[in-house]
Nucleic acid binder design. Structure first.
Lengths: 216, 216
DNA sequence: CCTACCGATCGGTAGG
DNA sequence: CCTACCGATCGGTAGG
């Protein structure tokens, strides 16, 4: 009986955690992690301020938990859908298309969560900066690895530099997100798609095998 | 004598304005425009809070004045040095090199001021968003125009799409700034320079006339 | 009647 | 998870 009561409380706590993190991800994508406050979250979700505090321990822990939760959403929305695409130029293109869809479809209301919080914390120091920097390095490494696999699989020429190509692809994706959110201009996704396909065609062993457009 | 006294007060007011805006540009490039507070500025600069308030009228006006001041710095640091370079692919390259130097040399301590505040306000609405969005459009239009002039001058092939090329060049510059600030990795500027020159060579009528490296 | 400030304080909210 | 508070600081305004 005592155990059942404790389990019930733990379950309610986890449900409240998910409720809170769903809202903090939304807020942070629009206003940044600095837009989070315990009192505001509590009021919006009909919780007490100290109740939210008890679940996360501090404002910084709430920010870190929000970054972790957004990482899970990113993995599910961007990486997971491409999991079964075989290595090659087509897999690189599919990964970029998946990212553009994640941004365009507003998985988070303010566009890419990480674009928002990375710019917010890039010049600061501390645990939140470090968590965001690690997420950024992980994503960069994943794109580079996808390019490297494509070259090993024979889909890209040996002259393709994985680090350079990944940098250029990510740059195009990031600017599409910024333009779209800042100006409400979805045409930026077409520009990014055009640029990405242009880069890939220039190093693909079978350019004709690539799609004509990306997302759009 | 009465006139001299009034002039002295106006001059002191202008000097204080410049003092305040110099500091708010620094703060905003690191922490965003949300990091500005009248009390903090007053404390740091040994002014009274109400004195700072009297100079700007409201926090939002302080933010808008900071954006305008940063626009002047950007024009002086990025655009002005390239003013006398004749239209052509070399002028486009010089403009990009000027931007990379502006970011690399930390004209603002947190890297490009506009990269920081654009990501902060892109998903919000209001006068500050609008001022930032206009600055972004102006810069984009200036890069496009520089590309267009280069084409008219015969430096770029007729196939070069100014809007697409400007988008790709700006994307590379922006990501170099982000990487450098986030990871303290100056090699990102080399990656951006390599990408920019690669784009320009692919559409230049005289690729050999372009520099071998950009900034670096 | 103007400016560029001052010390003090308004109603509210921050993290804890 | 709650109420009830703390030291401090927020943007903004009072009279002088």
């Amino acid at each position: 009986m005592g155990t059942a009561r404790v389990d019930g409380r733990v379950e309610r706590g986890n449900a409240t955690r998910r409720l809170v993190l769903g809202r903090t991800m939304e807020i942070a994508s629009v206003e940044g992690l600095g837009g989070l406050s315990l009192g505001r979250i509590a009021t919006e979700l009909n919780l007490s301020k100290s109740g939210v505090f008890a679940l996360f321990g501090s404002k910084e822990e709430l920010q870190l938990a929000t970054v972790r939760a957004a990482g899970s959403v990113f993995a599910a929305q961007v990486v997971e859908p491409v999991r079964d695409v075989p290595p090659g130029a087509g897999r690189v293109a599919a990964l970029c298309a998946s990212w553009l869809a994640y941004s365009r479809d507003r998985t988070f209301p303010g566009g890419c969560f990480f674009a928002a919080v990375t710019a917010e914390f890039d010049a600061r120091s501390g645990p939140v900066h470090d968590a965001i920097a690690k997420a950024h390095l992980d994503w960069t490494a994943y794109v580079e690895e996808t390019v490297r696999e494509a070259r090993i699989a024979g889909g890209l020429t040996d002259g393709a530099d994985p680090a350079q190509l990944a940098f250029e692809l990510i740059a195009l994706m990031e600017l599409a997100n910024l333009y779209s959110v800042l100006h409400g201009d979805p045409a930026a996704y077409d520009r990014a798609g055009t640029g990405i396909l242009s880069r890939l065609r220039s190093v693909a062993t079978d350019p004709a095998g690539l799609p004509e457009r990306l997302g759009g």
